[in-house]
């Protein structure tokens, strides 16, 4: 059965790009997409996906808040942070339980970016 992913990003364009990558390249089924932290929490609950990708700077509830709420209820949740933020906030997200991160900008035109993205997703799926 296909792995499922929920994509949360406040940029519709980037959500579309990510959705396409997950379905076309990684063979995932995109269960749902959201544009803020509140939707991330709702959608995780509704779909219990194999993976949820999370932007950090989002309206309503930000990525860090959503991550904490999801992990509080589902400690085994696999959360992949996809963000341009690469400072203390990202460190904190990884410390509280985000499985890994992918750095924006999304460079789907570059081999090395795609290679790293694939490796990161594979790692996360292998983790407990």
């Amino acid at each position: 059965m296909d792995k499922t992913v929920v994509i949360v990003d406040d940029s519709k364009f980037q959500t579309m790009q990510l959705g396409r990558f997950f379905s076309d390249v990684l063979g995932f089924k995109v269960a749902a997409t959201g544009e803020n932290g509140e939707e991330a929490v709702e959608m995780y609950k509704a779909h219990k996906p194999d993976l949820i990708t999370m932007d950090l700077t989002m309206p309503k509830l930000d990525g860090r808040g959503a991550l904490a709420q999801i992990l509080a209820e589902f400690p085994q949740a696999r959360v992949l942070v996809i963000s341009a933020v690469k400072g203390p906030l990202l460190l904190e997200c990884l410390a509280i339980g985000a499985k890994s991160y992918v750095e924006k900008p999304l460079r789907f035109d570059r081999e090395d970016f795609i290679r790293d993205f694939k490796a990161t997703v594979t790692e996360i799926l292998q983790s407990a």
Binding site: K86, L90, L91, L94, S100, E103, D116, A119, T120
Partner: peptide, 11 residues
């Protein structure tokens, strides 16, 4: 142990 060094060192 569970996050690639490449990822960690980049941070």
């Amino acid at each position: 142990r569970d996050l690639r060094w490449e990822k960690l060192s980049a941070l």
